[in-house]
């Protein structure tokens, strides 16, 4: 069963706890998750870190966590600025960009 989870407009260190709790609730519900980032416009490193932590947890459980659409806009700018796109692993490339770097 796949579940589409809408990510709020802003996930920063101030709202990180709330977002992490929402994700944990989804994990408890034993769902495979597609994250809908279409509303996300304000983001910082706390969001990226939560997604790395969540990916690990979903992977260990043999379930799937992915983005509904490839990352774009502010999130890509953040990933670039923070050095997440240097030496991008195939797994990260798949997760963030669905296997294809934006041109």
């Amino acid at each position: 069963m796949r579940h589409l989870m809408a990510v709020p407009q802003s996930v920063t260190v101030r709202s990180a706890r709330q977002f992490a709790n929402s994700l944990s609730d989804q994990f408890e519900a034993e769902s495979n998750i597609d994250l809908d980032l279409s509303d996300l416009t304000e983001v910082d490193l706390a969001f990226v870190e939560i997604l790395y932590a969540a990916r690990m947890q979903w992977k260990r459980a043999g379930r799937e966590l992915r983005l509904a659409r490839p990352a774009e806009g502010a999130l890509v700018a953040l990933l670039e600025r923070a050095g997440f796109l240097t030496d991008l692993t195939p797994q990260d490339l798949e997760f963030w960009f669905h296997g294809e770097l934006p041109q």
Binding site: V13, F19, S24, A46, I50, Y52, M56, Q57
Partner: peptide, 18 residues
């Protein structure tokens, strides 16, 4: 040349989100 290292990020259940 900046490379982020994510190897010490714990799983979500163990993460303090802030």
């Amino acid at each position: 040349r900046i490379t982020a290292r994510t190897d010490t990020i714990p799983a979500l259940a163990d993460l303090v989100p802030t």
